[in-house]
Design a protein around this nucleic acid. Structure first.
Length: 571
RNA sequence: UGCCCCUUAGCUCAACUGGCAGAGCGUCUGACUCUGGAUCAGAAGGUUCCAGGUUCGAAACCUGGAGGGGCAACCA
């Protein structure tokens, strides 16, 4: 592969993207440095649902394992009994699998508590750790600040025997929460704050969703994480940039614990997407305060929300591939994600016609009572799929209100008094008369059709610029359409005035429900959960949770790119 | 006022580790004319954060500076 042409490289869809992490892993493989194959892990804390940020990490960790013939574990980092729950464990497993990945090992940090405890005792025996009996405030004060050194507390030089005794009694549950902690004995003046005698174990008499109440000294992140990696034989431990400073304690611990060829931590930038928020803490607030219907609300950037909305895992994986992996923070445009979603659906889903805001059209010269079937291909010419359905055509139709203007501006290629348009897959029609109600609202258009134009072409060769979608009024199915839009009204939801928070940046238009849209009858017997492109409108999926055969409900997955809207905005 | 990291096109990333700064998305223009979508073709867009230095040659290496971010939770 050393002399591939650019063409050959880009035409190979499975060619793995190169990034600094993959480069390192490739070196590991070449050098045999670890003495074992590449091993990664995805280590979520089960305290919330997975979101797009996790998807990036999942694609990276599992992707590397797949590309290099290594392994990837799913490990629940469940070291905090206060926040964790089995319901999150279940959701996380479901979401990882739905994304298309299968873990090699399924592990829980809470299964390593005994092992970690043994390491803690060894540390004490080696004079590398001590039991500190100061309270939280005293410990904080003793740590100093970023610009000043900390000072040793009164318990720092306890004897090994006393430390061991205290640690054993901590484990035995003799002490109350907060009375003692185990600390590594490193350096209270260390330039890296994390190294100023970091806390290893704290007492928590609480119910843990897996351990119940049988354990009461919970390891902190820094103590649990690297050692869990080492226990599992991980080679490269991938995490986000904010853990950069933790690398030093990570290395210190795996070395002190005596692991040969221990794993190494590599940091990459966490994903930020504009117009949404990728923070479990903040997403939990949206759920708890009722701003969304749940973790799987289709507006949520969670895997479960995206799945419910109709996004396919292929689109998420493609997106994660295109954004790449870097060492600098960046906010990715949501447009890039929407593009990935369209790109995926474009080649996969059939086209149908659905009128969102129905406006009746009566074809005055079409025979009363007549219905003819028009054949309509389900895919455009450039999508390599076949299939068609038949669409009933009759005297009374519905078209979209947006496709009619009584007093149109220039370059409006749709219906207007005296103007001719093409009905998709059907005839050319001309608008002759506009019927209004007493309030002056347009309620009906009276048009004539040209019987010679069933093919969509005029025999006399006259050009018709616009093509609009329609349904036959009598046969169309009434359905509900949920138009989902961006969750927040501004790119950075946290950029709000002083005194406000991201809640005030929510987009009030993030869900618009249309209760009586009209869709062509061909979809009547499709399974719930089928995806479509509603031509000229967007991609939609029938809502698994709310659709019934009697009343279909569709979620808008993503809109089509709309250059007319851009034209309008431009004025 | 300490330690660590980052800064290349609007955005995300490249640049074979010192050899003519490129790609995707976005934007714009055009083609097609039964999706104002898609697709296809083309274009615009750069003082590689700044100032010095090393070198025949610097985005890359060195020094100084600026801007941004992380770290002082018994969260992860």
């Amino acid at each position: 592969m050393s002399h591939t042409t650019p063409d050959a490289a880009s035409s190979s869809p499975s060619a793995p993207r190169r990034d600094f992490i993959r480069d390192l892993v490739a070196e590991d493989v070449a050098s045999g440095h670890f003495g074992r194959g590449p091993a990664t892990r995805f280590p979520p804390e089960p305290n919330g649902f997975l979101h797009m940020g996790h998807a990036k990490s999942i694609c990276l960790n599992f992707g590397i394992a797949k590309e290099f013939g290594g392994t990837c574990n799913l490990r629940f980092d469940d070291t905090n009994p206060a926040t964790e729950d089995v319901k999150y464990v279940d959701a996380i497993q479901r979401d990882v699998q739905w994304l298309g990945f299968q873990w090699d090992g399924l592990y829980y940090a809470s299964d390593y508590f005994e092992r970690l405890y043994d390491i803690a005792e060894a540390l004490v025996l080696n004079g590398k750790a001590y039991v500190d009996s100061q309270n939280e405030d005293e410990i904080r004060a003793g740590r100093g600040t970023v610009t000043s050194a900390g000072t040793p507390g009164p318990y720092r030089d306890r004897s090994v025997a006393e430390n061991l005794d205290m640690l054993r009694r901590m484990r035995a549950g003799e002490f109350a929460d907060g009375t003692h902690v185990l600390r590594a004995k490193i350096d209270l003046a260390h330039p890296n704050m994390i190294m100023r005698d970091p806390l290893l174990l704290r007492i928590r008499h609480a119910h843990h969703y897996r351990r119940g109440t049988d354990w009461c000294i919970y390891p902190l992140y820094d103590f649990a994480h690297g050692l869990s990696d080492a226990i599992e034989g991980i080679t490269r431990s991938l995490c986000t940039l904010e853990f950069k400073d933790s690398r030093e304690i990570y290395d210190w611990l795996v070395k002190e614990a005596g692991f040969a060829n221990p794993p190494t931590q590599i940091e990459f930038a966490r994903l930020e997407l504009d117009y949404t928020i990728l923070s479990k803490r903040k997403l939990l607030r949206l759920v708890n305060e009722g701003h969304v219907t749940g973790w799987d609300d289709p507006r949520m950037p969670t895997i479960a929300g995206l799945r419910r909305r109709g996004v396919r895992p292929e689109a998420i994986r493609d997106f994660c591939e295109t954004i790449g992996v870097a060492r600098k923070d960046a906010r990715v445009e949501i447009a890039a994600f929407e593009h990935a979603v369209r790109n995926d659906l474009n080649m996969e889903v059939p086209r149908v016609l659905c009128v969102l805001n129905p406006l009746k059209v009566v074809l005055t010269n079409y025979p009363e009572g007549q219905v003819e079937d028009l054949d309509a291909p389900s895919f455009p010419h450039d999508v390599p799929k076949t299939g068609s359905r038949s669409m009933p055509f009759s005297r009374e139709l519905y078209v979209d209100r947006d496709d009619f203007m009584e007093d149109p501006p220039k370059k409006f290629y749709r219906l207007a008094p005296g103007k001719e348009v093409r009905l998709r897959f059907g005839y050319l029609i001309t608008c002759n008369e506009v019927v209004k109600n007493d309030a002056g609202e347009v309620i009906e258009l009276r048009c004539t059709y040209d019987p010679a134009t069933r093919s969509g072409q005029a025999p006399d060769g006259r050009k018709v610029q616009g093509t609009i979608h329609w349904v036959s009024a009598a046969q169309a199915l009434s359905c509900e359409v949920r138009l989902y839009d961006r969750l927040f009204a501004q790119p950075d939801p946290d950029a709000v005035p002083e005194g406000e928070d991201f809640i005030s940046a929510l987009n009030p238009q993030s869900l618009v429900v249309i209760s009586d849209a009209k869709i062509e009858p061909s979809v009547a017997n499709d399974p719930i959960g089928s995806r479509y492109q509603f031509e000229r409108t967007g991609y939609f999926m029938s809502e698994v949770e709310s659709s019934t055969p009697e009343k279909l409900v569709f979620n808008r997955i993503v809109g089509l790119r709309d250059s007319w809207a851009k034209e309008v905005k431009r004025g």
